Simulated scan of single mutants.
Amino acid sequence: MLSARHPEAAVHRPGPVVPSCAGLTMTASYLAESTPGAGPGFLFRIENHTAKPVTLAQPVPSSAHWYAHVGGRWLWRASAGRGGALVDAIQEKGPMFAYQPATEPGDPHYMAIPAHGVQEWTELMRDHPAIDYRPSCAMCNYPGEDEYRAVFAYAYLPHAAEHVPNLLTCGLRSNPVVMPLLSTTRR
């Protein structure tokens, strides 16, 4: 669709949006390289405080959002992955943009968490592109950066032909994860 003011410009239509989940929490912790050549990673944990089991479509998390501390403010640096970006950055517990596949997934994988259950796992950055630490770009570096944080997220809506019991249709965001200085994580 073209705009009347700018006939050559397409009208922006944001993707689907989901609310933040109630009764579920996702946390993450940075893990330094423990095996030579393996690289760093993260320990993830999802707690289901509800009386119902939930299922999440892999990958979990589906996105990462990187922030740098400059002076007295936290500034966004970069995002990677799909699903989980905040619709309004001021509302940390607000709605998130969700990933929804355009075609039915060919070989989907899911993670199940029982009612009142916990799922914990480790992901290496090298094995999960959405969590690879990449907040460096010549145009977006801030002078005086001295601390870094990462927030991981998950937000997924199924394809119309995808029927999975207890599939989570709300979004999760992790705690801000303290990251080492950029120079210590470059590979």
Rank of each mutant, 00 (worst) to 15 (best):
G37K: 12
Y154M: 08
L181T: 11
H128D: 12
R13T: 10
V151Y: 01
P101V: 08
P180L: 05
V18L: 13
S136G: 15
G94E: 02
R187S: 13
A51K: 11
F44I: 00
Y67H: 12
S3I: 08
T35E: 15
A155M: 11
L24H: 09
C140G: 09
P129I: 03
V60M: 04
M1C: 13
P176V: 04
F42E: 00
A64D: 05
T122L: 09
P129L: 08
A161V: 09
E8Y: 13
P176G: 06
V18T: 13
S183K: 13
G81E: 01
H116E: 15
H49T: 03
W121E: 02
T169K: 11
H6Q: 14
A89G: 07
H69A: 10
T185Q: 08
A155F: 03
M139Q: 06
I113N: 06
Q58D: 12
Q100V: 03
Y110W: 09
V70K: 04
T122S: 05
L56S: 06
R149Q: 15
L182Y: 07
V177D: 02
H65T: 04
F152A: 01
G72Q: 14
R134Y: 06
I46P: 03
R126C: 09
I46R: 01
A38M: 14
R45Q: 13
P95G: 13
V178P: 00
